[in-house]
């Protein structure tokens, strides 16, 4: 890891901490949960997980997660994804100096 990588990780951690302390992280998190629930994404991921458990004949968390995660990330609707990222961008715009 280069020093600039660790510098940017540190910056990300600071931003995340600021979002948590200001209560904005909670707002974003509940909004995302709400939208994914309404999209049916939550149920779909649960169904997919059960399907992978059956087809791999395994209940091993690490193994099943490796199968489910990439698909579940893809399954988020564009509107939910854009909506939430815009919201995050907006909060960041209030606290970060951009040049």
């Amino acid at each position: 890891m280069t020093s600039s990588d660790s510098r940017s990780l540190e910056l990300k951690a600071q931003i995340q901490q600021y979002l948590v302390q200001s209560g904005n992280y909670e707002i974003i998190s509940s909004k995302l949960t709400q939208m994914l629930l309404e999209d049916g994404w939550m149920d779909e991921v649960k169904r997919l997980t059960n399907e992978e458990i059956k087809s791999n004949d395994s209940t091993n968390f690490t193994q099943i997660l490796a199968k489910v995660e990439p698909q579940a990330l893809e399954m988020v609707s564009d509107s939910t994804r854009n909506n939430v990222i815009n919201q995050i961008r907006q909060f960041l715009g209030e606290i970060v100096d951009t040049e």
Binding site: M42, K46, T49, N50, N60, L65, V68, E69
Partner: peptide, 10 residues
């Protein structure tokens, strides 16, 4: 969120 769902389901 995904880890949470998978962990509860497994």
């Amino acid at each position: 969120l995904i880890q949470d769902i998978v962990s509860r389901t497994t």
